[in-house]
Design a binder for these strands. Structure first.
Length: 307
DNA sequence: CACTTGACCTGTCCGC
DNA sequence: TGCGGACAGGTCAAGT
């Protein structure tokens, strides 16, 4: 989410108000609309606000249509003015400084004032959806989405209530579920759990009230900080032709397997939780203590390991 | 229902 | 140098 928010801000500054003169889709499955519909929706229309919901971007147009853009893992948006980079956002392995369109360009928008907007994506996971104001609100992608992690709706009470449907699933899985709270991805789930001193594999229902309070706070702190530092974009975003700050050096866990925990010095370990690569500090994030004797267990069944 | 796994894709890296 | 396998920041469908 912080990467998407960074990109959103750059786009607000560089393409808001631009008129779309033409659009070319280089890989049809990228867009959910036929060519005539897409042309009718965008050609000659101006880009209004660029908003974000969870990890998706919403380009408002000057009529009741919107472009919903989800970049998933490797998506990238590049804006150039007369060939000069204006905004880069996205994945490092794709060449973002070479000629465009390139092998990974899925769509090209020709904008007014000599601006070009390219959406590139190596893995073909990214998608654009053409929606009306009505269908946007009802879009399945947003339908069950939880509150914005940094929005006013994400209170401790709401967090608790959203987590209530989970019992034995690892807390990390619950965090990654956008229905719990919108905007937490794999990197930030790990970071939040570290700050809150919770083991990623701890069964959700067994997280104590105090730990949950720490986690709620950690989510706000980590994401706010990551947004302030333009996210964990790997080689760094470029905006207005200059490299951005990046949150990468501030990460406690990401990319730091085997390196000392910034809090206690214990080497960071890597494992797999909820099917995702997971970094954690075995000292700061101990496996949850066994329930006090006599108290009924919350049904945790954890396979033992050396972690 | 809660939870896990596989699929979607391409590129990179690591071990043999 | 080549090759197979694991893995990569997300989400959804289908499975147990």
């Amino acid at each position: 989410m912080p990467e998407v928010e960074t990109l959103r801000r750059g786009l607000e500054a560089s393409v808001r108000g631009a008129r779309i003169e033409a659009v070319k889709v280089l890989w049809p499955p990228f867009v959910n609309a036929s060519r005539p519909l897409l042309d009718a929706v965008v050609a000659g229309h101006r880009i209004g606000a660029i908003r974000r919901r969870g990890k998706a971007l919403i380009f408002d147009l000057d009529h009741d249509w919107h472009l919903l853009v989800h970049l998933k893992m490797t998506g990238q948006v590049v804006v150039r003015r007369h060939g000069q980079p204006v905004v880069f956002g996205g994945h490092p392995t794709a060449n973002i400084v070479g000629p465009m369109p390139n092998t990974w360009t899925r769509a090209v928008f020709t904008l007014s004032a000599g601006r070009m907007l390219y959406i590139n994506d190596q893995r073909k996971f990214a998608r654009v959806r053409v929606v009306t104001t009505e269908t946007l609100a009802a879009d399945p992608f947003f339908l069950h989405m939880g509150p914005e992690a940094l929005g006013p709706g994400f209170t401790l009470a709401v967090f608790r209530q959203r987590l209530a449907r989970y019992r034995s699933a690892p807390i990390k899985a619950a965090l990654l579920d956008q229905a719990t709270v919108a905007g937490i991805g794999n990197i930030y789930a790990d970071e939040c759990l570290h700050l809150a001193r919770i083991h990623p594999r701890q069964p959700t229902a067994s997280v104590t009230a105090a730990a949950l309070r720490r986690l709620h706070r950690a989510i706000r702190v980590i994401l706010r900080d990551a947004v302030a530092h333009c996210g964990t974009s790997f080689p760094a975003f470029i905006r207005d032709g200059r490299h951005h700050d990046t949150w990468l050096d501030r990460a406690r866990l990401f990319g730091r397997e085997g390196q000392p925990c910034r809090v206690c010095g214990t080497p960071i370990e890597r494992t797999r939780v909820a099917g995702r690569g997971t970094n954690f500090c075995p000292h700061c994030q101990p496996v949850a203590a066994a329930p006090a004797p006599g108290r009924p267990s919350a049904g945790r069944r954890e396979r033992h390991s050396s972690e």
